[in-house]
């Protein structure tokens, strides 16, 4: 870890101004930032603590939907009654992530910006285009069992590690920010970037721009949602493949489906292909299999991770089986 300046922000405006000016980093729970600072992977010269900002509330929006402050802790969000009742997929995703201690620290905004667990990103002795643009990618011919099969490029195949963001992707969340040029709202799908030739740019935030809150739209009545995370062990491990689904079934037919995957993509992976294969179709094993195949049609396996394609399909199929059964 290198020496850095530390300050506490009293207002959102002040925090934004400070980071825009200093080129520093916001710190909330610190579960990613401090970890990577210890490894010298991130070396901000200035760290602005935003924990004192009034961004820690969960509020029901008039007309339905939920507004989640950027500083709401993962554990508070997971155990929130409204979230558990109306957005079960989000609660389940949060509780499948990390450990209780980490969830007590980690925040909603920070979780969206969580960095990859790629071994090579986390070690400054390796080539990594995400950490050091133009240096190469050690994962391509390295041990890439945990890497992405969707959204990768010849420059980067690192997975996005968040579970929460996968659920939010299926919930069609919107990210609200305040930056040097004012406030804006960005759909979560547009918020994340695939690596392409600039894997160092993981999202559309500009320097100093702060996530203030996330909103979830109201869901049609009768919506069911679920998260399934598959991995080597049962706790405290990132997904090898995970599936978040939000569906409505009527008379044995799938009216509406929102499908997202974790552990397999370079960003939390919304699959419109799968949604298309499901909507208007009977809730049958054939439909589920077609949707799973559609979701992974463009998947590109690396040397060690081909099994993730099959695993992701199975996670989706299991979720569909469970949520479309007559209650």
């Amino acid at each position: 870890m290198q020496v850095f300046r530390y300050s506490q922000a009293r207002t959102v405006d002040g925090a934004v101004e400070n980071v825009a000016r200093s080129g520093g980093a916001f710190i909330a729970g610190g579960t990613t930032l401090v970890d990577l600072m210890k490894l010298n992977v991130l070396q901000p010269t200035s760290v602005v603590d935003i924990n004192g900002l009034p961004l820690d509330r969960i509020e029901t929006l008039p007309g339905g939907g939920l507004r989640i402050g950027a500083l709401v802790r993962n554990s508070d969000l997971a155990w929130n009654d409204t979230v558990r009742q109306q957005y079960a997929v989000l609660s389940e995703a949060l509780l499948s992530g990390a450990s209780p201690q980490l969830r007590n620290m980690a925040t909603t905004g920070g979780n969206l910006l969580q960095k990859t667990r790629c071994y090579y990103f986390r070690d400054t002795n390796y080539a990594c285009n995400k950490r050091q643009p133009g240096s190469g990618c050690a994962a391509l011919d390295g041990f890439n069992r945990i890497h992405a099969v969707l959204g990768g490029s010849e420059h980067c195949v690192a997975t996005h590690p968040s579970d929460m963001a996968v659920a939010m992707m299926a919930l069609e969340a919107t990210v609200h920010t305040q930056g040097p040029k004012g406030e804006r709202a960005i759909t979560l799908d547009d918020f994340y970037l695939v690596p392409g030739s600039t894997p160092d740019r993981e999202n559309v935030l500009v320097p100093g721009e702060l996530i203030t809150h996330v909103t979830l739209p109201a869901l049609p009545s009768g919506t069911r949602s679920v998260y399934l995370k598959l991995r080597d062990r049962q706790q405290y491990e990132f997904a090898l493949a995970s599936s978040a689904i939000v569906v409505n079934v009527n008379g044995g037919s799938i009216q509406r489906a929102r499908i997202a995957f974790g552990g397999v993509g370079t960003k939390p992976w919304r699959s419109r292909e799968a949604e298309k294969a499901l909507e208007g179709q009977p809730a049958s094993p054939e439909t589920f299999r077609r949707a799973a195949d559609a979701a992974m049609a463009s998947a590109k396996p690396l040397k060690y991770n081909a099994f993730k394609i099959e695993l992701a399909k199975r996670a989706l199929i299991r979720n569909l089986e469970q949520t479309t059964q007559a209650a």
Partner: peptide, 9 residues
């Protein structure tokens, strides 16, 4: 995190 051992679960 990356060297996987048994958890209680």
């Amino acid at each position: 995190a990356d060297y996987i051992v048994s958890t209680n679960a």
